[in-house]
Amino acid sequence: MAGDIDMIMAIAVSLLLVAGSVFTVLAALGLLRFPDLYTRMHAASKAGTVGSGLLLLAAGIHAGETAILLRALAGFAFFVLTAPVSAHLLAKAAHQAGYKLTNLSVTDQLPQSKQKSVVI
């Protein structure tokens, strides 16, 4: 019986490990392949967050203690909360500083004129 539980735990942890690392490496590949900053940000902020979060979760489950699992969950929640904030801040800063979208872009409805007022 104990062996069964061990097996299930090992399989769950392995699945999380493989999924997390695949997401992370695809995020890194996206960082390399996407044409401009804003599209790259999609890869980093979504796939990257999910990848690291799954790996943390795998570590928490593997530990087999409620306290550590909760800690890993807290880390995951923190990660999910902060990743969009930093992505948002970086996108806003880059756009206001005047970094352009890729030539493939179809629209840009965010007014650029605002940047003149930003003198810090």
Binding site: A27, P35, D36, V106, T107
Partner: peptide, 17 residues
């Protein structure tokens, strides 16, 4: 996003709305 990264042509039409 993962599937999109793996696609050879990516078919991107990005923009800000």
């Amino acid at each position: 996003v993962a599937v999109m990264v793996l696609r050879p042509d990516m078919r991107l039409r990005p923009g800000i709305f």
